[in-house]
Simulated assay, not measured.
Amino acid sequence: MFGFKDEEERLKAVEDIIQKEWDMFQKVHNIGGRAGCQDDWNTFHIMRFSQYSAWNDFMIKSYANDTEEAISHGRNLVMEKYAFMMEFTDPLYYKRELESHMPVLDLEAMNMVEEISWYMVDCEKELADQYPKLARAGRPIEAGGDASGFTSVETYAKGELKTYSKNTLKLYLDYVRENRAAGKNLALMVRDTMVKMYGYRSIEDAENKL
């Protein structure tokens, strides 16, 4: 697999993924009715674009293929993500209503999901130490925080990671291990893009103004 030929091609691939995810998001049926965030394209786009801005080309290409494969098989990856989250936020409902309809991950995939999510939690903890006000504006970090009524970074990550193909998970895990070895924080990379899309000059600027 080769990377993109230039930044324009990479950006087009990212935007194509986000549009497919938005279309899937529109078809998610919430227990309490349609959620307000389903009408908020701007926030959705910023959140998803910020995430993919921190990925390498191989991850983007692999996940683009995941979305195309899912659509061709009638799967809604966004709906599956939220369903997988309910395994932690509402386990009784998940067991009774959802589990039998969900894809089953093998042990190798589950181990990759766990290792990637551990890294992401560690990154968020490091970010919270450096930028506490910025961190407080986001999700709780660990799954214990789900009780607050807001889905934690850990639970959200596991729900989303479980929708990825094995190839995407392997590429993600390789990337995580490279970042860890280099002392790089993926959460900081994502937030750097995110705060700039919201109009701040930098993470430090956002922290000072929050």
Rank of each mutant, 00 (worst) to 15 (best):
Y93D: 14
S50F: 01
R136L: 05
W41H: 04
G145P: 07
D6Q: 04
N76D: 01
A182S: 09
E8W: 11
E126A: 06
E68T: 13
A128D: 07
D174N: 01
A70T: 01
K95S: 12
S152D: 06
H29E: 15
D106M: 04
R96I: 14
N208V: 06
E207Y: 09
R10I: 08
Y131S: 05
V190T: 04
G183K: 02
P103R: 07
V190I: 05
L186D: 08
W22V: 02
N56W: 07
L11S: 07
Q19E: 14
W41A: 00
T163G: 07
E114V: 10
Y63S: 01
V113T: 13
W55D: 14
D146R: 12
I60P: 01
K12H: 11
W41C: 00
S202G: 08
I60Y: 00
I17H: 03
E97Y: 09
N56S: 05
L107C: 10
E108P: 03
A128Q: 05
L11E: 15
L92C: 12
E15H: 07
I116H: 12
E142S: 06
R48G: 11
Y198I: 04
R48D: 04
A143K: 13
N76F: 01
D90I: 06
K81T: 04
T89P: 03
A128M: 03
N167P: 01
N179E: 11
D23E: 13
M110T: 14
D23I: 08
Y63A: 02
M24E: 14
W22K: 08
W55P: 07
W55C: 14
A70G: 09
E142K: 05
A35M: 15
G36F: 15
M120I: 14
E99D: 15
G144L: 03
E204V: 12
Y175P: 07
V190W: 03
S53G: 02
V78G: 04
G145M: 02
M189V: 03
Y198K: 14
F49E: 11
G36P: 08
L173C: 11
A182E: 12
D129Y: 15
V195Y: 04
R177E: 11
G159H: 07
S148H: 11
M194T: 10
M112D: 10
E126M: 05
M79T: 08
K133E: 13
T155D: 10
R136C: 06
F49R: 12
D122K: 10
E154G: 02
D23G: 11
E115T: 09
A182P: 07
A182M: 12
I116L: 12
R136W: 06
K158W: 07
K27C: 04
N76P: 00
I71F: 10
I116C: 06
R34Q: 14
F44K: 10
S100P: 08
D129R: 14
M59C: 04
Y200I: 03
F150V: 10
L188D: 08
I116R: 14
G144S: 07
W55A: 09
H45A: 09
E87P: 13
L77N: 02
R177V: 11
F58L: 11
S62T: 01
Y164Q: 03
L92M: 15
A109E: 13
P132W: 00
I116S: 04
P91A: 03
V190R: 02
D205A: 05
S165M: 03
R180W: 11
D174K: 13
I71E: 15
D6G: 06
G3M: 10
L98R: 10
